[in-house]
Design a binder for these strands. Structure first.
Lengths: 341, 341
DNA sequence: GCTAGGCTTTACAACGTTGCAGAAGCGCGA
DNA sequence: TCGCGCTTCTGCAACGTTGTAAAGCCTAGC
């Protein structure tokens, strides 16, 4: 398969020599330059095939100032939502001929800042960044001199493109769904005290809006704080909620991991779901459909987020001058057993 | 932060000019060449800091023939086991100063073959490859001219390094665990008919060995075939198992996704776990600990697999000549509620 | 038969870095 | 004093590709 046997040995030079044309003509053929005589093109192509020539991408990158690699910075792949997001981004990128370098920030603020200025930015043509800890105060750090697309709503109004879902509306819809099933004492788990712009804050806002719209009084005792949105956190929040003795007939997990943690604890404590307490999550990860009982959730349009983000980034990389955009993707309520009547 | 404002504009040339030394001296400083006077080093370092110089990695790659990127080819990130594996590989790579380019094969044979010869191999110094569909017949395709580490036991004995767990022993231990809890009618879900070298075949082998060791007759009716190891497959297998009417008191899911699918169906069909049927999985993904009931599983030493794979690959990349190695990692039985007595 | 203008092809010079070979500076023993 | 060997620094030539500009070729139109 590899004509020469020795790796990376075949260059345009060799192809040119074999085909009896100049090295630049080989380059032109490879790059689909239009004005080439069919006979020449074929001659070159044959030489390429015979020698098993492959373009040296480092050389091309050096010359063009582009690598064909985009960065994707996210908290951790072991969080299912981000694994699924990465999957979608990689597919979207592949469809457009670029590859993806993933960097994990461990949801650590310092690490998130580093990613923005890391040496690796030299290796990528642009970055899709999903921060979890940065806040409005860090807006300056996001003023970078390379193409950047930010996912989520933590920091907005800056000089970068933005793809996000409407967290407020989606959370309102989730809450409304619970209300529609007759629930009135709806707890929220995973809230972040003091936060104003993060997903947690926005989703709680939507929750409150739904209560208000239905004339249900807001009870602060039903809002349970929790840190990183892992299953363990959801379990912990739920235990605290139940231990507090406050009356509850539904739990809104601010993401699916939290909600799954909640299901876990409810099951362990013999609380019937949805009989005694209904549960809804947020993100619609694959797990949700296979939990016991299956978990209702909000589908955030992951595919859409991924392809929008890649499209925006590639447009910037291509140098298209356009005002910075803020794309809001669609969401959908996915009712399942955990909120059945 | 970036002195010049214009991206990628600062080169060693500029640093050299500013520091009043030759460009090669800058290179030496950056690369920690030992024979440099402290004063010179400091002068250069200051110029670097003042100008915000960053190495152009494409140029370095071109010159050195190395990119500092390793490839990781796996079926899909949306399969939790592979997401967690990718997480570990990225961390291991980061600790060693290289970055990871992930490619998804969708568990498609053609795609798995393509990954081996793709243009992207030009971009990576080596590849960690976790095939799911390739079999012994494809051994030739794995004879590539770049550093390669293969994960899993589908194809062995070739000219590449290998990291895997002992599937047979681990499956035997899983089965033994069920037997220890008094189970005798143990079903296996997710088997692959006709396969001889894959994880499925090896794990079934271990299952049979455990039965034999305990004098339990092997009943082919208890072996349920299933394709891709998704939750949906596990659910489907379990439905078929229950519908068949065959007597069962335990289910061994050949991976956790299958077992979670099984839990889902058992719950839906009001079968008590572990009262009526015990369930054990394989891989110990994070979900396992949060399922309802929590799922017993086999921990395959993911961290160890990842760091061994990265170490082996980097050693090859560094050109160390050593015989091809076959590393077997440790495993551990993780008993949880789904197999409690 | 000649020229304008389009199609093809080419030579050259970068892109930013590092290996190599060697030059300059220095200390030290003969 | 000289030369040797070590440290420190430098110039040059690559690495493999593509943009630029220009040269050759060809055809159509006069």
């Amino acid at each position: 398969m590899n004509g020469s046997g020795v790796r990376g040995t075949v260059t345009m030079h060799d192809v040119a020599a074999r085909a009896g044309v100049s090295i630049k003509t080989v380059s032109n053929v490879v790059n689909d330059y239009p004005h080439i005589r069919p006979a020449t093109r074929e001659k070159v192509q044959r030489a390429i095939d015979e020698l098993g020539y492959r373009m040296n991408l480092s050389a091309r990158s050096l010359r063009q100032g582009r690598t064909g690699i985009i960065g994707l910075a996210l908290p951790e792949l072991s969080l299912p939502y981000f694994a699924e997001l990465a999957d979608s981004v990689i597919r979207a990128a592949e469809a457009r001929g670029v590859v993806v370098l993933i960097e994990q920030t461990s949801a650590d603020r310092q690490h998130e800042l580093e990613v923005l200025t890391s040496d690796r930015r030299q290796l990528t043509d642009g970055l899709i960044f999903s921060p979890l800890e940065l806040g409005p105060d860090d807006a300056d750090a996001l003023k970078v001199d390379y193409p950047l697309v930010v996912l989520g709503e933590r920091i907005f109004g800056g000089e970068w493109d933005h793809v996000t879902m409407n967290n407020v509306d989606a959370a309102r819809a989730a809450t409304q769904h619970l209300i529609d099933q007759g629930r009135r004492r709806i707890a929220v788990i995973g809230a972040h005290a003091g936060e104003t712009m993060g997903s947690a804050a926005l989703r709680v806002l939507g929750y409150q809006a739904a209560l208000a719209a239905n004339g249900i009084p807001f009870d602060p005792e039903l809002v349970i704080e929790g840190g990183l949105w892992h299953r363990a956190t959801g379990a912990d929040c739920t235990n605290r909620l139940l231990d507090s003795g406050v009356k509850v007939d539904a739990v809104f997990g601010l993401n699916d991991a939290l909600a799954l943690g909640a299901l876990h604890v409810l099951h362990a404590r013999d609380v019937d779901v949805p009989g005694d307490i209904a549960v809804i999550g947020f993100d619609d990860i694959e797990d949700a459909a296979y939990a016991s009982p299956t978990l209702s959730s909000i589908s955030p349009g992951r595919e859409q987020i991924a392809s929008m983000a890649v499209d925006l980034l590639l447009a910037r990389i291509a140098g298209e001058e356009q005002p910075f955009r803020r794309v809001i993707t669609d969401f959908e309520v996915m009712p399942r057993e955990s909120t059945a009547v």
